[in-house]
Computed example of a mutant assay.
Amino acid sequence: MDVSKGIALALTVWMLVALACLPAHVDGVGIAPNSLGCVGFSPSRALPVTLEALRADPMRYHGRLVRVRGAYVESFEMSALHPGPPVQDPWAAEGVWVNGIPVTALPSEQAVELTGIVAAGRPAFPYGKGHLGQWPAALCVSSIQPLPTP
């Protein structure tokens, strides 16, 4: 491996480690997202919506700032907000896809209130959102509020 490729690889690894190690700080309103492409907004300006309503008509909320509750599930190729907790089958796509949450910021199936901008998908692959386009909408998160487990 020549020196320039080694330096580029080392810098890439360093940047990925730095991003993964960003602190999930608490500023009185919950965990701060990593903001990778997700703009920060005040949760008080968001439209409260249920996960069921968002799933039923994602185009109604497309481009809007919403606040929604559910159980956040994160694993290999998975970042989604589901009804619950508990989550019966995380791959059933019963929720919405989530972008902008730092890796390992929350335990899996943590009850949360997320605030973010909705991007509606079309009903069939490849026009849906998230993994394999199977999700009806994606939420680009600007605020995360962990909730007590019911």
Rank of each mutant, 00 (worst) to 15 (best):
I7S: 11
A8K: 11
A8R: 12
T12I: 15
T12R: 14
T12C: 14
W14G: 14
W14F: 15
L16D: 11
V17Y: 14
V17P: 06
L19M: 11
L19D: 10
L19H: 08
L19W: 10
A20S: 11
A20Q: 08
A20F: 12
C21T: 15
C21F: 13
D27S: 13
D27L: 14
G28P: 03
G28S: 04
V29H: 14
G30C: 03
G30R: 09
A32V: 15
N34I: 13
S35V: 10
L36C: 07
L36T: 12
G37F: 08
G40I: 13
P43I: 09
S44T: 15
R45I: 14
V49D: 05
V49K: 05
V49Y: 04
T50L: 07
L51S: 06
E52K: 11
E52S: 13
L54R: 05
L54V: 08
L54W: 02
L54A: 05
A56L: 09
D57N: 15
R60H: 11
R60E: 12
Y61T: 08
Y61G: 06
G63P: 03
L65R: 07
V66D: 00
V68K: 06
V68T: 07
V73I: 03
V73P: 02
S75N: 11
S75Y: 06
F76W: 14
F76L: 13
E77H: 10
S79K: 04
S79P: 01
A80R: 00
L81W: 07
H82D: 10
H82T: 05
P85E: 09
P86C: 03
P86L: 01
V87M: 00
V87Y: 01
Q88R: 14
D89F: 01
P90Q: 04
G95C: 06
V96L: 02
W97C: 00
V98D: 05
I101Y: 01
I101N: 01
V103I: 12
T104C: 15
A105Q: 01
A105K: 03
P107R: 13
P107T: 10
S108F: 06
Q110S: 05
E113F: 08
E113Y: 10
E113H: 08
L114R: 03
G116V: 03
I117N: 00
V118G: 04
V118C: 04
V118W: 04
A119S: 14
A119R: 14
A120Q: 05
P123E: 08
Y127I: 04
G128L: 00
K129L: 05
G130Q: 02
L132A: 12
L132V: 07
G133L: 02
W135Q: 08
C140L: 12
C140K: 10
V141D: 04
S142V: 02
S142C: 10
S143I: 01
S143N: 12
I144S: 02
Q145I: 05
P146N: 06
L147A: 09
